[in-house]
Amino acid sequence: MPNEGIHVIEAKSITKKFKKFVALDSVSFEPRTGEIFGLLGLNGAGKTTTQRIVSTVFKPTSGEALVNGFSITTQASQVRKSIGFVPTEVGLYDRLTGREVVRYFGRLNDMDGRDLEERIDAVFGILSLGEYADRRCGELSRGNKQKIAIARAIVHDPPVFLFDEPTSGLDVLSARSVIDFMKKSRDDGKTMLYSTHVMSEAEEICDKIGVIHDGRMLYTGGLKEFIEGKRGLEDAFTNALRVNAK
């Protein structure tokens, strides 16, 4: 069974070029099963590009990654079944209700019938979306849209979540419920690749982190080790960038 490996995501020397521009330069990281792995970096560091490669949206120029034991280059469709991807930009179909959107994605992920409806109810329950389920997405608040986007991504109950800045643009309460949801998912054994530039959130929930800057990984490893001797994650992060600049 491929998903019994310790490292449910293994990214090995991923390089991504857009024409001549090197967006990712030999990036490697390996979160363990049941961990939240924080991908920390400034705007333009390469977080989204990394997420898109792991989620098979982009092909790497070189390098390889295994997700749940499947290769992103040769087993893309098995990889897609194994992930729940929430991109930064929440786009929903404004004229469909939340339930219709999630049902659509459930069907495209090979679910159907009673199983699907029960799963939708369950996911909406976890995300406390119940009363908004049957409203058109165009009428929802930013926070509830984000929750629908999460529900849409995880409706097929994948073992790996890829969340790209899931709290950006959200108010405190909505951001809090997303963070709480991630903690709860970790308790359920999910592995998460979570990119952010909000250091306080990362400090609260990450087990491991990767610090990415200009497409290069400056640090990968435990969060605790990274902030040892510093005043916190933000301090450690700015320090790492400063050392790199020298």
Binding site: V57, R80, F85, D110
Partner: peptide, 15 residues
């Protein structure tokens, strides 16, 4: 789908 940012989610389904 591009302009409303719905495409990416669609591309990572099993379809």
């Amino acid at each position: 789908e591009k302009e409303r940012h719905t495409l990416e989610a669609l591309l990572v389904t099993s379809a």
